[in-house]
Design a protein around this nucleic acid. Structure first.
Length: 552
RNA sequence: GGCAGCGUAGCUCAGAGGCAGAGCAGGGGCUUCAUAAGCCCUGUGUCGUGGGUUCGAAUCCCUCCGCUGCCA
């Protein structure tokens, strides 16, 4: 039976390029999951978009002397290009700047306000008398009250790394004009998270299928007690607050960005409720793929908003990944200790990256990306085990069977054992992908490729072809069948190479065929194969490593 | 400072009371269809430290060390 699967992917900030952390953290697992469910014949809606609001954007724009819109447009286009090249198959990748998103966000805001889940309160804020505006924390600089360092920002001190409150800074200055700001009371709206403490606990405790890290992390927040949080800001870039007298304020980015999952669904459906609502109600399952830094927003705040709003499904699962380190060190965009996706895609194919990050995905703990590992996994696993299996079989068929799928004869015990193994692997990977165990699924698939090589070694068709053409044809047909199975189970991980393989095997229809084991048609003529993957010259490693941390 | 997580083979990572695992690298052999690819064999690891619970601990509890994150 066809199911409805909604896949929401964390929204990247449109203030810089994408890096491998974004990919390993949420985009790649979401895409694997989406492709898997499409093969299973389920209805999938996968959305995300550029997060175009928030002070990181406005600060970047002011540093560059351009408008925030110019910054976000530039990166949004770059994101779209990256999805295309890496094969991240969004049904819609929109932005938070659309009128639709503003309308949906304001609707949720007003509904929660009406129901009493949002209320007004007054808070002290830095105000710059010269700029005539309230200053977000990041716009204030001063002396760190903890370590005495002079260059601390209002939200955090880079010197000692401690998070701060801008009103605590000594000798505060406006980062725009250097004037000393005043402290003024400013009225803001607050989300009454405290009202959802018990409903959330009850709901989360029932989510025993969640990953332990997500479950424990969320429960710990609840143990500390949820506090109401301000959801508006004194800023002029963002979604307007739909209340009179609040023209100079905007919805705070964390309140509004999570609404993007819903607004993007509505945009995808061109507003047709009959199309989008089935993904948000009834048996439909909502999955949110995010990084661990985003857990509380997706397991507490957004669910609380949904509970308050009513009528929409809460997340079914939030498979948050941990972090990807780079060459043993924590990824840092400001120090340029990152592998940028546009750079990667300029030099390499998408599938090797998808392979490496899937094999080493930070599913249960932080993992490390190293160029040495990337090269060796490409050369020693992808090329040597899988690519070579495909290549040796297809070139053999071309050379000795004039490029036609050989006719299989009687299947002996060894051949049957291989077929059984392939059938079992299809089921194992099926289960692993359904449960979001991406590493395990890939491992099982690669084990089947190894089994295929083992089978060939044992049958030695290169010997038997001279004396037993029929038996050798059966051997090759068995091998091609296994390769066809690999084509399907690896499609979610390696869509580009599976698409080529689908053609090389002379299979009917699209590569997005059902999740089943397609057998090649005996007698069918095959196109000339070429290698699925390219071996990388280890000389490239050093060059890549030396780029890390260099000034951009 | 408070809280949490992590620390397992040379490397990257699994395992979560019952004989320490996988892939890769390294060593030895076989093979030659294939991108010098493949296959077989090959691990004496104080499971970070010290203690405790248990018939039995990598696994549960406590101490300490190291790293990471969150919070103040």
């Amino acid at each position: 039976m066809s199911e409805r699967i909604f896949i929401g992917v964390a929204w990247p900030y449109a203030n810089g390029s994408l890096h491998l952390g974004h990919i390993a953290g949420c985009c790649l697992p979401a895409d694997i999951f989406a492709r898997y469910h499409r093969l299973k014949g389920n209805q999938v809606l996968m959305v995300s978009g550029s997060d175009q609001h928030g002070t990181p954007i406005t600060l970047r724009a002011e540093q560059e002397g351009v408008t925030p819109a110019e910054v976000v447009d530039r990166y949004h286009l770059q994101f779209l290009d990256c999805w295309e090249k890496l094969g991240i198959s969004f049904d819609l990748f929109t932005t938070t700047s659309t009128p639709n998103h503003a309308r949906v966000s304001q609707d949720i805001f007003l509904t929660l306000l009406e129901k009493g889940y949002i209320y007004k309160n007054s808070v002290p804020q830095q105000f710059c008398p010269n700029c005539q505006r309230y200053l977000p924390d990041r716009y204030v600089e001063g002396t760190c009250p903890l370590c005495g360092s002079p260059g601390a920002r209002g939200d955090q001190c880079d010197s000692c790394g401690k998070p701060l409150n801008s009103t605590e800074l000594g000798n505060p200055r406006c980062r725009i004009c250097d004037t000393t700001p005043l402290i003024r009371e400013s009225e803001h709206f607050f989300l009454r998270l405290s009202a959802f403490q018990e409903p959330l606990r009850k709901w989360i405790e029932a989510q025993q299928h969640w990953r332990p890290n997500v479950l424990n992390f969320s429960l710990r927040y609840l143990d500390e007690g949820l506090r109401d949080r301000a959801i508006t800001r004194d800023i002029n870039w963002g979604v307007p607050v739909p209340v009179e007298g609040y023209e100079d304020k905007r919805l705070y980015v964390w309140f509004e960005a999570v609404i993007g999952y819903l607004s993007a669904s509505i945009e995808w459906a061109s507003g047709d409720e009959a199309r989008w609502r089935p993904f948000w109600s009834g048996d439909a399952r909502v999955y949110n793929f995010i990084g661990k830094d985003n857990i509380p927003f997706h397991t507490l705040i957004w669910p609380a908003m949904l509970m308050g709003y009513g009528g929409l499904n809460l997340p079914y699962d939030v498979p948050a990944n941990e972090f990807l380190n780079i060459q043993g060190r924590q990824l840092s965009t400001s120090r340029n200790w990152a592998v940028w996706l546009p750079d990667y895609l300029e030099t390499y194919d998408p599938d090797p990256l998808r392979y490496y990050l899937s094999a080493n995905m930070p599913e249960s703990g932080d993992t490390d990306f190293s160029w040495q590992q990337f090269y060796s996994r490409n050369n020693d696993e992808l090329v040597a085990t899988y690519g070579n299996l495909v290549h040796r079989v297809l070139t053999f068929v071309h050379r000795h069977y004039s490029g036609e799928v050989p006719q299989p004869g009687t299947i002996d015990a060894e051949g049957q054992a291989l077929l059984d193994k392939a059938a079992a692997t299809l089921d194992t990977v099926d289960w692993a992908l359904a449960e979001c165990h991406f590493r395990e699924g890939l491992r099982a698939a690669m084990a089947l490729a190894q089994e295929g090589n083992r089978y060939l070694e044992s049958r030695a068709p290169w010997k038997s072809v001279a004396t037993d053409r029929e038996g050798t044809g059966t051997t090759l047909y068995m091998a091609m069948s296994v390769i066809s199975c690999l084509k399907t189970i690896l499609y979610p991980y390696l869509p580009f190479s599976s698409t080529r393989l689908h053609q090389y095997l002379g299979l009917e229809g699209s590569v997005e065929a059902p999740w089943e084991w397609q057998r090649p048609a005996p007698g069918r003529g095959l196109p000339a194969p070429s290698a699925l993957f390219t071996k990388l010259d280890a000389k490239g490693i050093e060059a890549e490593v030396s780029r890390l941390g260099a000034s951009p």
